[in-house]
Design a protein around this nucleic acid. Structure first.
Lengths: 106, 106
DNA sequence: AGTTTATATTTAGTGATTGTTATATGTCTA
DNA sequence: TAGACATATAACAATCACTAAATATAAACT
């Protein structure tokens, strides 16, 4: 069976605060095994593992097996898609700021 | 009763494709009533109305009543939070690009 | 006034998400 | 090899998200 149908997209992946925290932890630590990640949360290993699986689906994390542990690493590249999506709307909040500035200048 | 406890945050708000499409439609059209928005989707008015309620919770849309219709308008400002969150990770995908360039240069 | 139009609210059902415990598989170490 | 350790997977339960249908409210039109 092929990995045809990614069930989650990036937007869903980053919607969960636990997953955003995982992303941050991996950004700070370069590479971490599941048990060390789990230590940063109240939830169990299994739950963290599932969040990692969702992040893996979107290629936001990569993992490699090292003996008995699996080390997880951040791959920030997919976040560019979100950035691109956002960049379209920047002009709107800039417009707002421009308008506000204009009003205040009078 | 006060609006104390926003059930959804901005990340959840933009995680749904229907809501992202609503955001885009409002960006393009400036101001739209529910029925005109609904016409752009397969789903019913109720569903669109609820998506708008979620977007309103995060202040991504503002609405005003005009006679019997409610006009919805985009407020892009809350998207800045996502942009700020992303900006921290930009260096990671830039690092990657830098690394790739370095490899290719050899 | 009565009908149509626009929207909101309530109710309800299905399916997805998040988490748990239990079980299985594989790896290191004593 | 026996154990302890690291993780994955399966089975299950609770909660939440998404949508539809029915009902309610209020404005506009004839």
């Amino acid at each position: 069976m092929n990995k045809t149908h990614p069930k989650h997209d990036i937007y869903v992946a980053i919607a969960d605060p636990t997953r955003r925290k995982i992303i941050r932890l991996l950004a700070d630590a370069d590479e971490l095994p599941l048990h060390e990640l789990t230590a940063q949360f109240q939830i169990g290993r299994t739950a963290v593992s599932k969040h990692l699986a969702i992040l893996k689906e979107t290629d936001l994390v990569i993992n490699r097996k090292l003996g008995r542990e699996t080390r997880y690493r951040l791959n920030a590249a997919p976040l560019q898609e979100v950035k691109d999506w956002l960049s379209f709307y920047e002009k709107f909040w800039n417009e707002r700021a421009t308008l506000l500035k204009k009003i205040l200048e009078e």
